[in-house]
Simulated assay, not measured.
Amino acid sequence: MKLDIRTIKKHVMTGISFMIPVVVASGICQALGIMIGGPNVADAVVSLPYIIYKIGNLGLSTLIVPVICAAIAYSISDRPGIAPGLIVGLVCTEIKSGFLGGVIAAFLIGFVVNWMKKNIKLPETMQGLMPILIIPFFSTLICGFLMFTVIGKPIAMFIEAFTTFLENLSTGSKFIYGMVMGAVSGFDFGGPVNKTMSLYSTAMLTDGVFGPKAAHFLAGMTSPFGVLIAYALSKIFKKPIFTKDERQSVISCLPMGICMITESVIPFAMNDLWRVVLSSVIGSAIGGGLTQIWGVGVPVAHGGLFVVPTFTNPGGFVLALTISSIICGTLMFLLKRRLTPEQQEYGLDYSSDDDDKVADVNITF
């Protein structure tokens, strides 16, 4: 099995695409049960809120790792990888090696299954046993044994140590940690850097650590709302900073921001890269830090403002998002230069301006 960065990413992203709907459905069910039944809903075993909570809890605690393990194994070795992926994924859940263990197990399964398909030769009359007996049984046995005894235990120890480290961070350290996560998430508006943070925060989500996803969630909405605030300030203070095409696109940032679709900011960043990126990074960093010191927890992978009621400390999240959006929008308004009527109509190539070294921050009332 040939592996390079692009191939590994392709297989992992396949697993993520299968896993996210499970995380979203399970997380919303669990959070909804807690909202209806209160923090002690797990003790009310005969109630409707308990049933809703338990549906989500079973999905998050039992199903996430087997699903991503099976999906990655399927991406690597096709259908013969599904059954061992599910079973060995359950092994990873049992030994508490979590998301990371599931990913490593999936690649191990893919390697073993592909090796068996290539090297085991059976008589033609027995070929039908390969996909339903030989490959599932032996790949499950080999990979499950290795995860139980050799590979899985060190991973489980690392996951436990890292989770304990996050839980024991001081308030100041939590703020810095959240700032880094927010800045990374707000850097490239759904690009590879943002996707890397999404992968990390989703991994923490499946291991029961909900804080990192809060910073990523916030950054996904900060820049669209920041553009709206910058536009409002440009109207209030009569400083034209958007081209005609940008002004027509501003309104799309509202529904996109509500739905956590940060890609809506890409057209604005393409026209004025460093100012838009810098504003987004600073606003998202501060908001991300606030989510961590205020104890915001996000149990779902996506959903925008519609799933905020399912958060731990939803009021803290809304306040942090408001602060980050105001900072982002204000910085964008101050940093972006005033446009002439011609530039407003036809746009401006910022990269060709030799005198564009200091932003025009004058305000006309």
Rank of each mutant, 00 (worst) to 15 (best):
C69I: 02
Y200D: 02
G37F: 05
I229F: 02
I229A: 00
P123Y: 13
I16V: 12
L331M: 06
L199I: 12
D245W: 00
P84N: 09
T291K: 01
G190E: 14
A203L: 07
I135F: 02
L129R: 03
Q292P: 05
Q127K: 14
L100M: 14
L133A: 12
I28G: 04
G37V: 03
I151T: 11
P255G: 04
Y53N: 12
S75K: 01
S249M: 07
E342Y: 15
Q344M: 13
T262N: 03
F148C: 04
Q30I: 07
P212V: 07
L169C: 08
F306Q: 08
V180P: 03
I327E: 00
G37N: 06
E345Y: 04
G288L: 02
L108M: 15
A70E: 07
S325D: 02
M256W: 01
A269S: 11
K357H: 12
Y200V: 15
V277Q: 07
F148P: 00
L3S: 11
L273K: 10
L122G: 08
A106C: 13
F333M: 11
M221Y: 00
L319R: 03
F237R: 10
T140I: 11
V281T: 01
L228Q: 03
I120A: 10
L100T: 14
V45T: 15
F175I: 13
K213L: 05
F99E: 03
V209C: 10
M19Y: 05
V88M: 00
L339W: 03
G98F: 00
